[in-house]
């Protein structure tokens, strides 16, 4: 495709080429603008935001908003900053990602290499579960978490994220293992390997890319989740997104925009870092999750 466009492009006038780049840069500015706004204004004193130009660089550089956002700002009733909620998010994300990853890998393995009558039905049910609007499960989930004593706890959130994550993790691994040559499984069977040894010795060592894709996908989704966090967490177990929203939308006192921006960046940082470090896999996950059924 691009080779073709290139040869036509070579014949295009310089002007249209310049216009092309100009357009691309305008769009780049559009996408970078909010990040720029957040960054610049998170290091300005509040007075400079209120009286000044949001797009201007800071006259007076200060890290106070970051400190405040991290461990001083008022969240709900206590002035703890976002730090405890950042920890909450980590405590929630790590086990939820790990469990859903393992379960998804095993499911994908069974659904492609050890199919049994009815496996397709199981897969279809798992697949459809990826798409439900979570509003449909909010009420019963709240009840069940209350009944089993996990309401308002981080463990409860882990459970919720695992349950509604395995559809996607299974889908990822199933599609990946589908393309994994069945002859290799047969060769291993003839060599005398059983169910677990084929998985651990043959499939898992070749699963690097899909493991990374799945971790990134689950990490991003669970870290960024708001609905479950807002619905099922207590004051002590709030994840980062919920705490940030409380910080930003609290109606009492002065609106500390610089602290809000600093907080927003802190909340975005883990997923942004993941994206910068492994963007290729991130995109692959998005595609796999979206395009392939």
């Amino acid at each position: 495709m691009s080779a073709e466009a290139g040869t036509t492009g070579a014949r295009q006038s310089r002007l249209s080429r310049a216009l092309l780049y100009a357009l691309l840069i305008v769009f780049a500015v559009y996408y970078l603008l909010p990040l720029f706004v957040m960054l610049v204004n998170s290091v300005k004193p509040l007075s400079e935001i209120r009286g000044g130009n949001m797009l201007a660089l800071p006259h007076e550089f200060t890290t106070a908003p970051w400190k405040s956002a991290w461990n001083e700002a008022q969240i709900g009733v206590s002035a703890t900053g976002l730090a405890p909620y950042f920890i909450n998010s980590i405590l929630m994300v790590v086990p939820a990602v790990a469990i859903s990853l393992i379960v998804g890998a095993l499911n994908g393995y069974v659904l492609t290499k050890w199919r049994f009558p009815g496996a397709n039905v199981v897969f279809s049910l798992l697949l459809l579960s990826c798409f439900i609007p979570f509003q449909i499960v909010l009420i019963p989930m709240a009840r069940i978490l209350g009944i089993i004593g996990l309401a308002g706890s981080i463990s409860g959130l882990v459970l919720v994220h695992v349950v509604y994550g395995i559809g996607f993790t299974t889908l990822f691994f199933r599609n990946y293992y589908e393309a994994f040559p069945t002859e290799l499984i047969r060769a291993a069977q003839i060599d005398g390997a059983g169910f677990w040894r084929i998985f651990t010795r043959i499939l898992l060592p070749s699963s690097g890319p899909i493991v990374v894709v799945t971790i990134i996908w689950q990490f991003t989704n669970i870290w960024n989740d708001f609905l479950f966090g807002a619905s099922f967490s207590g004051f002590d177990s709030m994840p980062m997104t919920v705490a940030l929203n409380n910080l930003v939308s609290s109606s009492t006192g002065v609106k500390e925009y610089n602290v809000h921006f600093a907080g927003a960046i802190i909340a975005a940082l883990p997923t942004l870092v993941v994206y910068i470090v492994s963007g290729r896999y991130f995109v692959r996950g998005l595609m796999a999750g979206a395009v392939k059924g």
Partner: peptide, 26 residues
């Protein structure tokens, strides 16, 4: 990657950024 990075952000972060950027006061 510049065009794509917003997808990695939480909607809460996006909402916060745009909320104040679109705010007439500031």
């Amino acid at each position: 990657p510049i065009y794509l990075y917003p997808m990695a952000l939480s909607f809460i972060v996006t909402g916060t950024a745009w909320k104040w950027f679109l705010d007439p006061g500031i």
